[in-house]
Amino acid sequence: MTAAPYRLYGASHSLYTGKVRCYLRNQGIDYVELPTWHPDFATRILPQIGRGIIPVLETPEGRVIQDSIDIIDYLEAQGVPWPVYPQSPLLHILAIIIEYYGCQAMLKHAMHYRWSYREEQEDFLRCAFTLGSGAEMAEQIMGRMSSYLPRLGVNPGSIPLIETSYRELLALLDAHFAQMPYLLGSRPSIADYGLIAPLFAHLGRDPVPLALMQQRASRVHRWVERMTAPGLDCVEYPEQAPAFLDDGELPATLEALLRHIAGEIFPELTDKLAFMDAWVSEHQPEEGSPVTARPQVRQIGLVQTQFRGADIEVGVEPYLLYLLQRATAVLHVQPADQRQALLATLEQLGLSAAVPRGRSYQVGRRNNLECWLSA
Rank of each mutant, 00 (worst) to 15 (best):
P81H: 01
L90G: 01
S68Y: 02
L90S: 07
E120P: 00
I65H: 00
S88H: 03
L107S: 07
F124W: 15
A77T: 13
M106D: 06
V64M: 06
V84S: 12
R118N: 03
Q87H: 10
C103H: 06
Y101A: 02
D123W: 01
I97K: 04
L107E: 13
E76T: 04
D67G: 08
Y113D: 06
S116H: 13
Q121W: 12
I97Y: 01
Q104E: 15
I71S: 04
S68A: 14
Y101N: 04
R118F: 15
L75E: 05
I72H: 02
Y117K: 10
S88V: 01
A77V: 01
P81M: 00
I72F: 01
V80S: 04
E122K: 13
H112G: 01
I96T: 12
F124V: 08
I98Y: 05
A105N: 09
Q121T: 13
Y101H: 14
I96F: 00
Q87C: 03
Y74N: 06
E122M: 05
H92N: 14
Q66F: 01
A95T: 03
G102M: 08
I93Y: 01
H112P: 01
R114F: 10
Y100R: 11
M111D: 08
W115P: 04
E122S: 12
G102H: 09
H112Q: 09
I98G: 03
Y113T: 00
Q87M: 03
I72E: 09
M111T: 10
A77K: 12
S68N: 09
D73T: 09
Q87N: 10
M111R: 09
H112E: 05
A110N: 05
A105H: 10
V84C: 12
K108E: 01
Y100N: 12
E119W: 02
D73A: 11
I71H: 05
G79F: 04
A77M: 04
I98R: 07
R118T: 02
P86S: 05
Y101R: 08
Q78M: 04
M106T: 06
E99P: 00
I71P: 00
Y101E: 02
Q104V: 14
Q121S: 09
P81F: 00
L90W: 09
C103E: 15
D70R: 12
F124Y: 15
W82N: 11
H112F: 07
W115N: 02
G79V: 05
L91A: 05
C103T: 15
P83E: 04
F124S: 09
I72S: 06
P81W: 00
D123Q: 14
I65P: 00
L75P: 06
R114P: 08
S116T: 11
